[in-house]
Nucleic acid binder design. Structure first.
Lengths: 213, 213
DNA sequence: AGCGGTTTGTATCTTTTGTTACAAAATATA
DNA sequence: TATATTTTGTAACAAAAGATACAAACCGCT
């Protein structure tokens, strides 16, 4: 549990002192429970979040309600799309959901706009965030366009394991299918094949990754 | 054919006077022939292009050499990825090819960085460009992940027709396949089906879109 | 232990896309 | 005009993924 001062100090190595001071007076601490959706497509954005702890999942939801995982936002990071939407007062084009209980520092957009001009470290942070996301989204496109589902599934599981720091993953096949943009049956089928190949073990609500994976 | 003065005047309604003046003294006029590739993945970027005439095609090329069309850059626009890479002195993650003969105004990165701070209209332009590309890339993801190839092909053809202003499209099936990330045979098959359905006509090197499409 | 809801396993069938191979048509070039 | 090259058409087959349906296993709860 953070207070604002402690929260701001997390960014000591990234932001210049004057900016840290402004951050302390202008930002708002927030806690979110795992599973809560903070942001939906179409919603307008009034503040930008800096993630202090936990993980956020950013996914694309199209007009037909189909969804696919884009990327995770981790501790010390922020969301590139929120930045850009916020700065252009544009509604959101993505969904942001807390994966685990998370804490975030929210910076109102009107303050933030001036920071781009006043603080080089803020500008750098914003541009780096955007660059990172562009890079990750392009990697997603590579995968979706050219990789087969079994590969994507393996990548997904590995990514998940790295994110949670555990080889035991708590997800139903349905949830995995949602993230990959496919059906539960397909996921079950592929997971079973991986189990037969000794790459993992399947339990109720859980997947245990083995070293062979 | 532009001189720098005339070129800069194209942006009169977008940029403030002082910025237009700087643009005039600091930018470089360039012409590129249709088909020429200006930028490849891995290459470092020293200048940002503002497109004066023509069209650029931006595509993703992954490590295995597979490629897929991301978006077009049109007159008066610029490339979001180039902005961000440039500002963070990061190598390119995309390929940029001139679709037709094009003219561009190149702004060296060292000048450009200061403009973010000095000129609100530049900052706005940059953020708007980034937002537009994010939006388009997400649309691409929707398509690639959830649409079937025949739909994607139709969209592609329509887009192409709109870009060139003509319903007669000069492309081989192979080229179309490259842009969509699939094989020539598949494209031929789908095109033939569309022809049978009276949606278009097929010629050597050409596709004529009909109103039914 | 029994019940109801959720999750998983699996079979079957269909559709979509990819692959290979070869011939025919169109064009370019000598 | 003759020949080479490029482009297109198509068949036949394989692989991948989606859809439907139903049973079995698991869990939480009483």
């Amino acid at each position: 549990m953070f207070n604002v001062k402690a929260a701001v100090s997390k960014f000591e190595s990234v932001f210049e002192p004057a900016l840290l001071a402004e951050l302390e007076t202008n930002s708002m601490l927030m806690t979110v429970k795992g599973g809560d959706t903070m942001l939906n497509p179409g919603q307008t954005i009034r503040a930008v979040p800096l993630l202090l702890s936990g993980t956020f999942k950013v996914s694309r939801v199209n007009d037909e309600g189909q969804k696919i995982l884009l990327y995770y936002v981790k501790e010390g990071e922020s969301c590139a799309m929120t930045f850009t939407c916020c700065m252009m007062s544009h509604f959101s084009v993505i969904r942001g959901t807390a994966e685990e209980d998370s804490e975030l520092l929210c910076v109102p957009m009107d303050v933030m706009d001036g920071w781009m001009v006043k603080y080089p470290t803020w500008k750098r942070f914003v541009m780096q965030t955007i660059l990172n996301r562009f890079t990750e989204i392009l990697k997603s496109i590579d995968d979706i366009a050219f990789k087969k589902l079994d590969d994507r599934l393996v990548n997904y599981l590995k990514e998940k394991a790295k994110a949670t720091g555990s080889s035991l993953i708590n997800l139903t096949h349905q949830q995995i299918g949602d993230d990959l943009g496919t059906s539960r049956v397909v996921v079950s089928r592929l997971l079973k094949k991986l189990e037969i190949d000794n790459k993992l073990l399947l339990y109720y609500n859980q997947v245990k990754l083995l070293s062979e994976l």
